[in-house]
Every structure is written in C-alpha cells, then in structure tokens.
Amino acid sequence: MKFGLQLGYWGAQPPVNVGELLTVAEEVGFDAVFAAESWGSDAFTPLAWWGSRTERVRLGTSVAQLSARTPTAAAMAALTLDHLSGGRAILGLGVSGPQVVEGWYGQPFAQPLKRTREYVDIVRKVLAREAPVTNEGPHYPLPYVSESGLGKPLKSIVHPLRADLPIWLGAEGPRNVAQTAEIADGWLAIYYAPRLADTYNAWLDEGFARPTARRTRETFEIAASAQVVITDNPAAEIERMRWISALYIGGMGAPELNFHAQVYRRMGYGAEVDEISRLFQAGRKAEAAAVVPDELITDTAIFGDEAHVRKRLREWEDAGVTMMLISVSDVDQLRRIAPLVER
C-alpha cells in the first residue's frame, strides 16, 4: 500500500506551507499528491504551481468536478499537466452534488451516472487522438448542433503524452462504484470503512465482471481518503473530527440528497444521521457535533500511537486499499507516518 498526500481545496486563503510539505512527501516516499476543488480554488492550478518543485510524485485531481468544465476542457487540462510533469498526471473526476452543480456551475445535475460515462468516454477520445472527437450526446453533443451549423469535429492540436493517462473516479454509492470499476482506472473512496470491505468488493466485482471493463482488480487502484494522525491524545482528534463530520453529514448537500449522509447510513448510522442532520439544519451546529458518536469517526479515520496506526493501516491494506490518501498539516507527521507501511 502506498501513501498519497491530499492537499484538498483552499479555505478563505491559500495554505502557507504546501511547498515544504511536498518536498518532504517526495523525500519520504509518498507516491502521489492530490488537489481538490469545491466552489473556490480549482484543482489543476495548485498541482501545476506546487508540483513544479517535485520530480517523482504523481499529481492528481481529487476531484475535478464534471460540471466545472466540459469533457474536452478537462482533457486539455489533464494532457497539459501530464506534459509539464513528464507523465505524472492522474485525472480524478467526480459529479459533486446538486447544490453545487446547479447553484454554482449553473448546470443540470440529473443522470449523474450517465453523464459520467459519457464524460469519461469523450476524455478518452481526446487522449487517444485517433480521429476528430464526436459524440452523439445527449449530455455533451460534439459538435454542438446550433442554427449556424458551423460546429466542426476537431482533434487536439497537442499530441497527448499518454493515451492511457489514468482516470480515477470519486464514487460513493453502489451503482457509481460499480461503474467506476467498469470504466475507470481507479476509485477515489471517501469515508472508506474497512469493516464494509465485503460490501465494497461486491460493488467493484460487479463492475469488473462487465464485458466492457477496462481493468481487473489486480490493475485497479483504490485510494481511500482518511484522517491519519499519530498522537498520544486520540480523544482530542476525535473531538476535532466531530465538527467536521457534523458539517459533511448535516450541511454538505441538500437535506433530501446528501451523498455523504447516505454513506454513513450504509454503515449503520441511520438514526444518528437523522439527528445530526435535524440539528445542523436548525442551526444548532454544536449540538449536532455532540451527537456524532466516536465509532462513526474511528470507522473511517486512524488516531493513536505508532503501533495503533500501523495496525489500522494494515486493516485498510487487507481490505484492498492500494493507497491511503491522507491530509497532513505538518512535516513531522509526514516523517512519522511514512515508515508505517512496508514497501
């Protein structure tokens, strides 16, 4: 199992110590660095800027949101980054949710699975550069049919460095995970709980078994995002995560369609999710955080001394995870975590 560094997306201001983190991550053997986007900083620019000071780590988006750019624009960004980095780009894509897609990007959210399949197919056509890119739609028709009728199928001016540039997908539900195993090269898993590995593997196996599957389990990557902190005070980390968990369960999505909340329902926390959501949406955020049980947090995060962290990392690896994608704020944690997985 490998380590990836998750830079995430920015808060009110850019983070201040990313350059140092990247230098140390590459030095201690991290395999990849990822950047995310929501409705502020984008995912590609930080990788191009900060990634220019690296030589070995792969540079991935986790995730670039489908509705933020057309499929051809995403392919352009990915192939450009791939050339600049010498073939180290990973294009991680995800659908986000209706509040962001329709409220921020002004695009329809309907049929996310079909849109994802069509989007990925177009990106692969651009990267293959075998013919001018066409697509019948219905979501991304190329060329676009207008009254002028002047749209023309085109091939990328730039020859992509790799036709097989890896595409990973962020997915949470069973149908989405199965489709990811079918059409993608990797799964960006959020809130991955090793005790549900049999469930996840059943979803993945459904996708691998399809006639059009690109990969087998042996060549497919599973990158699980998780909070991993070596500490003598795990209770303090759990308390910190209570607030973050309450935000994602109660506030990161519409009350009637919150994919993060659905993940925790599948883990068996339905009653807790209902209460957290009710309190958070009523503006009672502190009370919502207080309702979050310790077990909900420790199912998907690792806090403890080095022996405990090593043991829990092995559980993730035994469950099939090929990369732990972790957020780390200081170089001391990077140096302490790196030796805990034998490579």
Rank of each mutant, 00 (worst) to 15 (best):
L5G: 14
Q13H: 14
P15A: 12
V18C: 12
E20K: 14
L22Q: 10
L22W: 14
A25F: 08
E26H: 04
E26A: 09
F30W: 10
D31V: 07
A36M: 09
A36I: 07
E37H: 05
W39F: 11
W39S: 01
S41E: 04
D42Q: 06
A43C: 03
A43S: 02
F44M: 10
F44R: 01
L47Q: 02
A48C: 07
A48P: 08
W50K: 12
R53T: 14
R56C: 11
V57A: 03
L66D: 02
A68S: 14
T70N: 03
A73G: 08
L79M: 15
L79F: 05
L81S: 07
D82T: 05
I90V: 15
I90G: 07
L93M: 11
Q99T: 13
Y105N: 06
G106S: 05
Q107D: 06
Q107I: 06
P108R: 09
R115S: 14
R115Q: 15
T116W: 01
E118W: 02
E118Y: 01
Y119G: 10
K125Q: 10
A128V: 01
A131Q: 04
E136Y: 04
G137N: 00
P141M: 03
Y144R: 07
V145F: 00
S146G: 15
E147M: 10
S148R: 12
L154T: 09
P160R: 05
P160I: 03
R162I: 06
L165T: 01
G173E: 02
Q179P: 06
Q179G: 11
E182A: 14
E182I: 14
A184M: 11
A184H: 10
A184Y: 10
D185F: 01
G186F: 02
W187C: 02
A193S: 10
P194V: 03
P194K: 03
L196K: 08
E206C: 09
E206M: 11
A209Q: 11
T216W: 01
R217D: 07
T219D: 14
F220R: 09
V229R: 14
A235R: 14
A235C: 08
I238G: 00
M241W: 11
S245H: 13
I249C: 09
R265Q: 15
G268K: 01
G270D: 09
V273Y: 02
D274Q: 05
E275K: 15
S277H: 00
F280W: 15
Q281L: 06
G283K: 10
E287N: 09
A288Y: 05
V291G: 06
E295C: 04
E295Y: 03
L296N: 02
T298S: 12
T300W: 12
A301C: 11
A301R: 06
A301D: 06
E306Y: 05
A307W: 00
A307V: 13
V309C: 13
D318F: 02
L325G: 05
L325V: 04
V328W: 00
V328Y: 01
D330K: 00
L334R: 13
R335A: 07
R336N: 04
I337M: 05
I337F: 05
P339L: 14
